[in-house]
Simulated scan of single mutants.
Amino acid sequence: MSDCCPNTSAKTKQICPECGSACNSVSMSTLYHQVRFLENQALITDSYYFCPAKTCSVGYFSNTGSTVPKQHLRTY
Rank of each mutant, 00 (worst) to 15 (best):
C56H: 07
P52E: 09
P6D: 07
A22M: 09
C51D: 02
S57K: 10
P17C: 05
H33E: 10
T30E: 14
Y32H: 12
S29F: 05
S62M: 03
P52C: 09
E39F: 10
A10M: 04
C16E: 03
N63I: 11
G20K: 04
D3L: 14
C16F: 03
C4A: 15
F61M: 07
C5I: 15
S9C: 07
S9Y: 06
V35H: 06
T45G: 08
P6G: 13
P17D: 03
A22G: 07
L43F: 07
D46Q: 10
V26P: 05
A10D: 14
H33M: 08
C4E: 15
T8F: 15
T8D: 10
L38T: 11
S9E: 15
S2P: 13
S62H: 03
I44D: 09
K13T: 14
I44V: 15
V26Q: 03
D3K: 08
S57F: 08
C5P: 07
A42P: 02
R36N: 15
S57Y: 11
Q34V: 03
V26M: 11
N7I: 14
Y60N: 02
N40A: 12
A53G: 04
A22W: 01
S27T: 12
Y32P: 01
A42W: 06
C23Y: 02
N24T: 07
K54P: 08
S29R: 01
S21P: 00
P52W: 02
E39I: 01
K13I: 12
T64N: 09
V35I: 15
Q14V: 00
S21W: 00
C19S: 04
K13D: 03
A42D: 09
T45M: 05
S62V: 08
C23T: 08
T45C: 07
K54T: 12
Q41I: 13
L31N: 04
F37C: 10
E39R: 08
I15K: 03
Y49G: 01
T55Q: 09
K54Y: 10
P52R: 03
N7H: 09
C23S: 11
C51H: 01
C5W: 11
V58T: 09
Q14L: 04
V58Q: 00
Y60G: 03
C4M: 14
C4D: 15
V26E: 04
C51G: 01
F50I: 08
